[in-house]
Design a protein around this nucleic acid. Structure first.
Lengths: 189, 189
DNA sequence: GAAATGACCAAAATGTTCATTTAGTCAAAA
DNA sequence: TTTTGACTAAATGAACATTTTGGTCATTTC
């Protein structure tokens, strides 16, 4: 990866997470990256593609972290929990994802909405893979992997994000217990 | 309930479900109800209160329908499913709730957002009651009723509403199976 | 001559003005 | 006493002016 391209990505990522996507101008990014504005367009065909590329690398990063949380010696239940926990902790602590989720909530910028939807879809696809692996190994009973991954994701959002809107937040520990006793019990063989 | 009050409520409910809350004017309601505009304000202190009253009676109606779906001879699992099914079918088929949910999605009218949030809260409270009853009777194991009702509701929204955004809709039958095998298994004793 | 640049442009966003609409009031009518 | 609709202050949005901004490309740089 050329040096300039890297500078541009870093500047844009910083500006997006500081001011949001909409409030970041391409002139701003050029200035922060110490390149001419035209240079940005030799690497990215639009502001939107710049955002998409940045989010793509975030997706890789999240998957990488989730993978790191998995330990082959542990059970499927434990691993899927550890992976989801990493995914949602990232989402909640990474400055850029925080800012972008805020922007979707408060302004609804379409480009940002789309890109965050993709992030969700990719996380579900990731969980789906883990489910398919576990099914192949016979660790869990056979099921619709897409649907199960979708439900796991929705349940995690419910416990991690939605519950806090009207109640005291749940501890990591409590979430794990609930996830285990409700959802995973239905998957055991 | 006085006759005029009833006329006003009916006119407003009709107009809200036809044009939405924001696009309904009080002059419009007065005309449809065949009363002077001032008369409306002898019964309701504001347009917002008029909406709140209408939604309150919808809430009663939904609870009533859900109750009717419950059959004491059946199991808790079957009954909670039947009740949730009625609640969500209502939500999806009742013209006024359809229009109001649309309005929240498309325009985000604050008064409507608030009132629909209340509807959700009351539905969760309803499910919670059923859970507490079942716990008292020893039909299910002991659990945090609020949290369990919340999860049931969120799972039903996921299956009934969210899933359809990117996949083929699930049949009533399939939803029942999933709900049973995933969530309810965790509650069995 | 390949890569980088920033002045430039069309289009979109934003600010401003002002006429219209609307929620809510209240003096008069029924 | 109850009902009403003309009235008001505030909100809305249409129309127009101004500024900003994403993206291009002729020119410069190395």
């Amino acid at each position: 990866m050329s040096d300039k391209r890297k500078q541009i990505i870093e500047a844009a990522a910083k500006s997006f997470s500081l001011f949001g996507y909409k409030a970041t101008t391409m002139d701003q990014v050029a200035k922060m990256a110490n390149v001419g504005k035209g240079t940005i367009y030799t690497f990215f065909k639009s502001k939107e593609e710049l955002l998409e590329d940045i989010v793509s690398s975030i997706i890789s990063e999240i998957k990488h972290e989730a993978d790191a949380a998995i330990d082959q010696r542990l059970s499927f239940n434990e691993n899927v929990q550890r992976a989801l926990q990493r995914i949602f902790t990232f989402r909640k602590e990474h400055e850029l994802t925080i800012k972008l989720l805020q922007e979707v909530r408060d302004i609804g910028t379409p480009a940002v909405r789309d890109v965050m939807k993709r992030l969700d879809r990719e996380m579900i696809a990731y969980v789906r893979e883990k489910i398919e692996e576990a099914m192949a190994k016979g660790e869990i009973r056979s099921c619709d992997a897409e649907l199960t991954a979708f439900l796991m994701f929705k349940m995690y959002i419910a416990l991690h994000v939605d519950w806090e809107k009207e109640h005291e937040p749940l501890s990591q520990q409590k979430i794990a217990e609930l996830f285990d006793s409700y959802l995973l019990k239905g998957l055991s063989r």
